[in-house]
Design a protein around this nucleic acid. Structure first.
Lengths: 217, 217
DNA sequence: TGGAAAACTGTACCATTGGTATGGTAAACT
DNA sequence: AGTTTACCATACCAATGGTACAGTTTTCCA
């Protein structure tokens, strides 16, 4: 596949890469604050101190920018989730408790972001839908399927050790976390209650706990 | 307050009301299919067979249209939820079982809409955010608070009869259904899995059941 | 039945936005 | 030194949201 390209890569950024990165940074902030269609190219190029020609040198069109933003977001998101659940496994050898710790860390992370936490880019794109080409929608779907796979494998590992006390489909249970995260962000925004999201994650945690440990303990 | 205005109101529609309604119907279909910013006024007036002046006679601007769409959606949504949970109470005197029946009917309704079910208008608006004025955002928040109140009162009624087996905050549990509905719609859309939403509702149902009945039964 | 209010039409115009075209130039690599 | 990379400058275009304003038809009501 591709050569590994980490954030700590030795090679310095070329001028072009630096500019492209600056555009993405500016665009991301604006998209998360105001939404994609409310972020104009003129605004971006003014902030990045380049011309329109410069912008279109880096991106074919606005959809291409959306694609790049989404790729960036998914990459960062995966890195964060990796770190969180790896930390969980660090702190406990038991798959259930490792997952429960991961969920708690996840909830804490969401709480820390407080107001104006980055609305989930995936949801933002999902609601524009037809505006974006299949490539972008495919990326989006791949990201969601990645979450499903990630959470499902954790849940399956748990189920081997702790036979579920109630009959639930584990892949639905995996999707539930994604759904709660996206839905929780929406409710947080609409109600201006930043803590709502982490409360929902913790409620999910209680559900998982009950499924594998029962209501008693 | 206002005089009661039901769908079965005797008074015939005036010409103006009929036109306004036609505009809203056309706009709603387009917004649910393509998103708000992707629905042009030109497109709407062509379908409604009126002129631009005609459109702006009924709506101050596009945001005013969004507000009207949201009001309409919230009204219809409340009517549907009322019907579903009333039916649940019809079929069982027990508050828990009435709620569980309501949830099942809710899931069935969501499943019937199959592909291209109406994406939640509230979420659609939430992701445009800054684009809309405070009035619209207030409406949005009121709708969500309405759901919370509705589900919370049902849950409290249940908790009086069935002491919860696990310690959960009931208002968080009420919000969970809203979050799952919105999040489920997003996942359904992104993955093109129309059944996902109703599966999530049923999973929520299993959670509620476990909280009040325990894992045993 | 006539006059006022409601519900439009028609035309013209404007700013913003996404996007294209084209030709030129400075910086970086080789 | 020459090529490629990374832009700038200018001009232009169509779609879209919106305004202005004068005129016309429909409807209602006294």
């Amino acid at each position: 596949m591709n050569a590994p390209m980490t954030l700590t890569s030795r090679r310095a950024m070329t001028r072009g890469e630096a500019t492209r990165d600056r555009i993405l940074e500016i665009a991301e902030a604006s998209v998360l604050a105001k939404g994609f269609s409310n972020t104009s190219i003129d605004e971006i190029i003014a902030a990045a101190e380049i011309t329109k020609s410069g912008f279109f040198y880096h991106f074919r069109d606005k959809t291409d920018l959306a694609k790049a933003l989404l790729e960036r977001f998914i990459h960062d998101d995966n890195a964060k989730l990796d770190a969180i659940f790896a930390r969980g496994r660090d702190l406990s050898d038991d798959p259930l408790h490792a997952f429960l710790i991961g969920l708690k860390l996840f909830a804490e992370m969401m709480a820390e972001l407080e107001t104006a936490h980055p609305g989930c880019m995936v949801a933002s794109v999902a609601y524009h839908d037809k505006q974006f080409n299949n490539e972008v929608r495919g990326l989006n779907a791949a990201a969601v399927l990645g979450w499903r796979r990630r959470f499902l494998s954790a849940l399956e590992e748990i189920a081997e050790v702790y036979p579920p006390r109630i009959d639930v489909d584990l892949s639905h249970l995996a999707d539930m976390l994604s759904a709660l995260a996206d839905g929780g962000i929406i409710l947080s925004r609409v109600l201006d209650e930043p803590r709502l999201l982490s409360e929902q994650i913790l409620l999910y945690r209680a559900f998982v706990r009950t499924i594998f440990l029962g209501a008693g303990d």
